[in-house]
């Protein structure tokens, strides 16, 4: 029976099965992770945007998956021409004390 199979060129189903198994294992693992980088980008920019104004187009967020560690690089270009200003968070009431303490930290170079 097996010998008979050898003379047959039509046995392509096992190849199909193997290709599908490999592909779907890959696609399923990608699907189970939400868009992590997109989420990180959104949240990081929201936090930084609360305190500094910058051009959202001048932001680079990269994730580099290595063998044992993964690095996350966040590169945000903040223009020098403008004074670093504290932008009050939208929808939040910022007290004067908070603002002034933040300002003094800026000027002291603590941040």
């Amino acid at each position: 029976m097996k010998l008979f199979n050898l003379f047959r060129s039509g046995s392509s189903a096992p190849v199909a099965r193997e290709r599908l198994q490999i592909l779907l294992a890959h696609e399923r693992s990608a699907r189970s992770q939400p868009d992590l980088l997109g989420l990180l980008r959104e949240e990081i920019l929201a936090v930084i945007g609360r305190h500094v104004s910058f051009d959202p187009d001048k932001v680079r967020i990269e994730m580099d998956r290595g063998q044992s560690v993964t690095t996350l690089a966040v590169d945000i270009e903040i223009p020098n021409g403008q004074r670093l200003s504290v932008v009050p968070p939208v929808g939040h009431k910022v007290t004067d004390t908070l603002l002034s303490s933040a300002r003094s930290q800026w000027s002291n170079g603590l941040v």
Binding site: N5, R8, S11, A13, R17, L20, Q21
Partner: peptide, 16 residues
Amino acid sequence: RAARGEMLSIDDVLEI
């Protein structure tokens, strides 16, 4: 065609 190995069998599809 499934018996001749030309088409994925029911077992293949169910397993995948």
